[in-house]
Design a protein around this nucleic acid. Structure first.
Length: 279
DNA sequence: AGTATCCTGGAA
DNA sequence: TTCCAGGATACT
C-alpha cells in the first residue's frame, strides 16, 4: 500500500475520524507487529495525525504517539458512527476483525483495526517528543511537497552513480516514493530508470522532479493505488491503478508513443518502462 | 551491486 | 507448484 499517496490518504481520513476521540482500549494480537506498551495509550485523546514519508503518526494529548509503517500489506481500517450509512464495498481479506487483524484500537466512538496479511508492518508506541528522533524517521530524506526542492533534488542526484530509480526509492535520500510512483514518474519524464543518477542532464532532472510531483499528486487525487491489498481507512479501494502509466502494464501500449511496455528487474524490483521513449 | 529474508495469498 | 507482490534490511 504504502507509498506517499496511500499513506497521505489514510492520514487525512484518520485525522477526520479520530481527532478529538479518546482511546478506551488497545488489543494487541501480535507482539511482532506492535512494539511498546499499549497501556500508555489508554485515555489518550487524538490531537494530531502526521505523516513522515511512508510512516504514519497519531499524536495523543498525553504526550504519546502511535508510529506505524504498513509496509506492503498493512491496513488501517476505521469503523464508527460516521460510516454508518456507507456500504462496505470491499471485502477485507480474513475479515474485520479477522485472522489478519493484529491490533484493535477502541475509541470512545469508533474502532480502528490494524490488519496486515504479510505482517511486515509495525506499530510502535513512542513519546511524542521522541518521534523525530526515532532512527527510521531521523534517517528519512526530504520529501516531495515538503523540503524537496529542485535545487536539493539536483544535489542529491549528483552524489550517486547508482541507477536513478534506486536513488529515488532510497528513503534516506528522498522519502515517500515507492515502486509504483517511481516507475510512472520515469515514464512521464521519459527517462530510463537505469541511468546513473549523476548522469542526468539539468533538463532531465527538472522533468523528473516535475513528474514526481505530478504522479504523487495524481495518486493522492485518486485516493492511492489498490493494485493488490491497499484499502483506505474506510476500507475502500483507491483508484490510481486505473491511471497507471507503466506500472503493471507489461505488453500494453505506452500512452506517450504507443510502443509496448516492457518489464525487467532492477534492484530486485519489477521495473516497467517504454523502451522507445525512455532512453 | 546483487540476493535472501521477513510473510501470505493469488495468479500463472 | 512456482513465481510474484505498494518495503526495508542484513547478508554475500
Amino acid at each position: 500500500m504504502p507509498e506517499l499517496p496511500e499513506v497521505e490518504t489514510i492520514k487525512l481520513q484518520l485525522e477526520k475520524f479520530l481527532k478529538g476521540k479518546k482511546i478506551v482500549s488497545v488489543e494487541v494480537k501480535s507482539r511482532k507487529i506492535f512494539q511498546g506498551d499499549e497501556k500508555k495509550l489508554i485515555g489518550g485523546k487524538v490531537i494530531n495525525v502526521r505523516r513522515f514519508g511512508k510512516v504514519l503518526c497519531i499524536d495523543l494529548a498525553n504526550k504519546y504517539s502511535i508510529l506505524a509503517h504498513v509496509k506492503l500489506t498493512g491496513q488501517f481500517i476505521y469503523r464508527g458512527p460516521e460510516l454508518k450509512n456507507e456500504v462496505l464495498s470491499e471485502k477485507v481479506i480474513g475479515g474485520i476483525p479477522g485472522i489478519h487483524t493484529h491490533v484493535i484500537f477502541r475509541f470512545d466512538k469508533g474502532i480502528l483495526y490494524y490488519n496486515d496479511v504479510r505482517r511486515f508492518g509495525w506499530v510502535r508506541v513512542v513519546k511524542t517528543s521522541e518521534v523525530e528522533e526515532e532512527p527510521f524517521i531521523k534517517k528519512l530524506g526530504p520529501e516531495p511537497f515538503r523540503g524537496l526542492t529542485l535545487k536539493n533534488f539536483s544535489e542529491i542526484l549528483s552524489k550517486s552513480g547508482r541507477a536513478i530509480k534506486l536513488v529515488l526509492m532510497d528513503q534516506t535520500k528522498i522519502s515517500g516514493i515507492g515502486n509504483i510512483y517511481a516507475n510512472d514518474a520515469f515514464n512521464l519524464a521519459r527517462i530510463d530508470p537505469r541511468t546513473p543518477s549523476k548522469n542526468l542532464r539539468t533538463e532531465e532532472i527538472k522533468n523528473l522532479y516535475e513528474a514526481i510531483l505530478k504522479v504523487l499528486r495524481l495518486g493522492i487525487k485518486y485516493g492511492g493505488a489498490s493494485d493488490q491489498y491497499y484499502l483506505d481507512a474506510r476500507g475502500k479501494k483507491g483508484h490510481y491503478q486505473e491511471h497507471f502509466l507503466v506500472y503493471n502494464r507489461t505488453g500494453e501500449k505506452c500512452f506517450n508513443c504507443g510502443n509496448l511496455i516492457k518489464k525487467f528487474f532492477l534492484g530486485g524490483r519489477g521495473t516497467y518502462w517504454c523502451p522507445n521513449c525512455q532512453k
